[in-house]
Design a protein around this nucleic acid. Sequence first.
DNA 1: ATAGGGTTAG
Length: 737
Amino acid sequence: MPRSLHLCRPSTCPFVSNLVSRSDATLPWSNRQLRPNPSSLHWVARSIDASPLCGPSQARTPQSYSSLLGRCAETRCLLDVRRVQTHLIKTALCPTLLGHKLVDAYLKCSSVSDARGVFDEMPERHVVTWNSMIASYIKRRRSEEAVELYERMMSEGVFPDEYTFSSVFKAFSDLGRVAGGQRAHGLAVVLGLEVSNVFVGSALVDMYAKFGRMRDAQLVADRVTDQDVVLLTALIVGYVQHGEEFKAQAVFSDMVRKGIKPNEFTLASTLIGCANSADLKSGKSIHACIVKAGFDYAIASQTSLLTMYSKCGIIDDSFKVFNYLANPNLVTWTSLIVGLVQNGREEIALLKFREMLQNSVNPNSFTLSSVLRACSSLAMLETGKQIHAVLTKYGLVRNGYAGVALIDLYGKCGMAEMARSVFDRLIDIDVVSMNSMIYGYAVNGMGQEALELYNRMKDLELEQNQVTFVAVLLACSNAGLVEEGWQIFSYLRDSRETELRRDHYACMVDLLGRSGRLEEAEMLVTQMNNPDLVMWRTLLSACRVHGDVKTAERAMKKVLELAPGDEGTHVLLSNLYAATCNWSQLIEMKSTMRDMKLKKNPAVSWVEVDREVHTFMAGDLSHLGSKEILNTLEELIEKVRNLGYIPDTRYVLQDLDEEKKETSLYYHSEKLALAFALSRTKNKTNSVRILKNLRVCGDCHSWMKYVSVAVGREIVARDAKRYHHIKDGLCSCRDYW
DNA sequence: ATAGGGTTAG
C-alpha cells in the first residue's frame, strides 16, 4: 500500500476510508491510522485483537505484544507505537520486557522523548534498556543526558557492560570531561572489559585521541588482545589529527604487517596524514593500496586522495581523482574547491562551485568559507556578497569559519564597516576572528580601531598570538602611529612570553622607516641576528618614500649579498633614482639590469564589473572596450587638468622626452582599469574599486585624487600593500604608503 | 534485544 494514502483524510473521503477498512487485514500496521476516529481506545483494542499478527486468543500474551511492537519498530510508525502503549498500560504484563520493547520501538521511530517517558515509568530496567537509551542520546549528540543516565544506572545498582562502555566514552570526549572518562575507564578495567572487548577498546582509543592524550590511546591499544581494523583506524586518526603523521604511518605499516586489512576509512585517514605532511611518496603508495584493494569508487578514500594530491600541490591529479568518481558528494566537491583555492586557482574554484550547485549539491560552511576565500583573493566583492546572501539563507553567517572568511573578504575589499558588522554578530569571538578584524582595520589604515580591538582582547583575556601582533603592528604602520607601535614592539621585546619574529621586526622597521626615522629603522635591522632579505627590502622601500639614497645604497648592498640578481631590488632602487632625479645612477642601474637580463614584474590592475573580472596591463590596449576606455580616459584627463593635475613624470623610468613620458603615464594599468570601470558604471554614484598587483604609482595616486573630485565618486584602490580610499580629493592613506 | 573508527575550513 503506497504511503501517499496518508494524504487522504478519512473524513472527507468515505470511499477511500471504506476501501481501506475492507482490505484492512492485508495492510501493514502503519496504514491503520486511515481508519475513522483513529485515536479511539476502542479502536486500538479491536485492531489489536483483529491483527493478523495476533489473533483474539493470543492478543493478551506478552509474546503477542512483543511481536506487535517489533512490527511497529520495523515500519517506523510512531502513531502505532503510541496506540500499542495506550493499550498496554491497561495490562500488567511483563513490564521489564515489554517496557524495553516499547522503548526500543520508540527509539526506532526516532522519538527519544516518548522512549524516555516509558523508560522513566518502568519499575525496573534491564541493562539492555539502559544501553539503548544511552546509545541513542549519544547518536543525537545529547551527551549530557547520556552521561547522566550512565551515572544513574550505577546508583540504581545496574552495572554497565561492554555495550555501555563502547558508547559512553564518546559522550565524555564530546563534553571534554577527561576526569569522568578516566573514571569510567577505571571501571571498565575493574570489570575486565578494557582488554577483552575490542569495541570497548576502540571507543577508549577514540576518546583518548579526542582528548589529545595519544600516549594513553596507544597504551590502551597495546593492551587490547584482539586488535582490529576499527581500533587501529581510531589510533591512526588520533595521530593524524595531532600532527604525528610519522606515528600514524607506523601504525599503518604495522597493521599491514600483522595481516589486519585496512579498509576505506583506514586508507582515508592515513592519506590525510600524508596530505598534512605533504608526503607525496607515502601518499602514492597508499594510492596503490587503494587500487589493489579495489576501493577505487569508495568515496571517503577517494576524497582523501584528492586532498592529498592538492596539498602536495598536484592539483591536476586531484582533478583526475575527482573526474573518476561518478557521484561526488558534498565533501568531495568541497575538497576539490578547497584544493583549487589553496593552489591559487580561484577562478576554477568558483566555476566548480557553480557546477556543484547545478548538480543540486547544497554547500555547507566548509564549502562557502572556501569559496569566500577565492572571492577575497580575487577581490570579487559582488560574488562575495552573493555568497554572504547564501550564508544568510543557510543561517551560517554567525559560524566562526564562514564569519572569518566574510571579515577577510570585506576587509580586503576595503569595507571595514561591513567586516565589523559581521564580526559583531559572531557567536564566538576567538583569536582568529579578532586577528582578521584587526588585520582588516590594518589594511584599511584604521589604526585607532585596530588598537581598540587589540586592547579589548587584553580585557577579555583572549590569548594573543604572533598573528595578532603582526596585524596590530601593521595597523600602526599603515596609520603612522609610531609611538603606539613602538610601545607594543618594546613590550613584546621585553616580555619573555612571545618570541619576536622577523615579521614583527619588519613591521616596526616599516613603521619607523615610513615616518622618516630611517636611522632608528636601520639600527633595528642591524640589531637583529641575521636580518634577512625581507628586512633590508623593507628598509629599502622606506628609503624610496623618503628619498634617502645613502641608506638605500647600503640596504641594497645587503639585499644583493643575500639575493644576487634580485629583480625587485633593482626596480626599487631605480624607482628611487628616478624619484630623486639621480639620472646617471638610474642609467647605470638600467644597464646593469639589462646585463643581468632582469625584467620588471609586469604591473597588472583589474576591476570587477557585473561580476566579471577585467584585467589591464600598462599600455595594453587590446581590451574589448579599448575604444571606450580611451574616450573616457581623454575626458578624465581634460577634466583633471582643469582641476590642477600635473603629470608627475618622475614615475616614468624610460628615457623618453617629456611628452612621451606623459603619454606613457596615461596608459598605466590602474588608469586603464579605472577608466574602464567608470565608463561601465557611468550613471552610478557608488564607489569604484580597482586592484593592482604592485604598489600604486605616485602619479596615478595623485591622478585618482583629482578624478574622485571630477566624477564625484569614491575610488577604492587596493595595491600590493594596502587600501586607498580616495574621496573628494583626499586619500585615507594621507599620501603615506 | 543494545556497541566502536572516516573524508572538507580561518
